[in-house]
Amino acid sequence: MFMNALLSGLTLGGVYALVAMGLTIQYGVSRSLNLGYGEFLIGAAFAVYVLFGALGISPYLLALVVVPVAFGLSWLIYRVMLTPILRRARTPVALEIDSLLLTFGLLFAMMGIMLLVFGSNYTSYTYLSVPVRILDATVALNRLVSFGAAVVVGALAFAFLMRTRTGMALRAVAVDPVGAQLVGIDVKWAAGLAFAIGGAIAALGGVLISTYMTFTAEMGVVFTMKALIVVIMAGVGHVVGALLVGLALGLIEAFVAAYLDPGLTVAVIYAVFLLALIVRPVGIFGRAVR
């Protein structure tokens, strides 16, 4: 039982870590918390479900189409809907409140469209559902492949942030947007790019999760909340922290489900979240700097 829980926790946690990383990049750089984040994930899951059903192409290959579309769509949403707010907001707090209200609306709009098209039923499809034995545990191949893809993309995104000039510019904007302007970084451009990268990562998460989980049009908010919990627990904008806490979240879920009760996973996660906030309000990896 231990190995089974460990494997299912790691595979799930890997995707949580990736999805949380996307949100922390989005939120950390653009300072706009996207409450419709999980809708991108579910939207991508449905897109893959439809395309896989129609064309029979591997969902992992379909990601090559779905992810760039999500990138473009997120960028467009930022430019069309969030830049006017950015121009209007007098203070960072006003910007956060306005963008919360706006993306709250975005959540319902996207969810409404998906409900209209796909209904509220649980949806799933079967792909690479082959049992693989590792030590004395069994895990489905689709979970392993999804975990591998999450690790590879997470590592690439991390390298992009740490090793490239564009990545360094994004980090600079996350730390101090005024300072970033003063070295010649176009903050609006950086925020749009971060928003687009976040949306693309959410969509990839949706593709990966759809290969082994059932999903509904109304489930986006669950993923937004989980990603948000990870982001806040790790400290906003802390990429490595998001990856570690995301992985831990998956493990906690799997072990609670295996040893306590599957119905308790959500309660335990929120309890851990509250505890972490009480002990470290700035996040486990967050630094209390101005």
Binding site: A172, D176, A180
Partner: peptide, 15 residues
């Protein structure tokens, strides 16, 4: 000052 306070001096200068 608006430095990038969580980055190193080298990164600040390089930015």
């Amino acid at each position: 000052r608006h430095l990038f306070s969580t980055l190193t001096v080298a990164e600040n200068l390089s930015l």
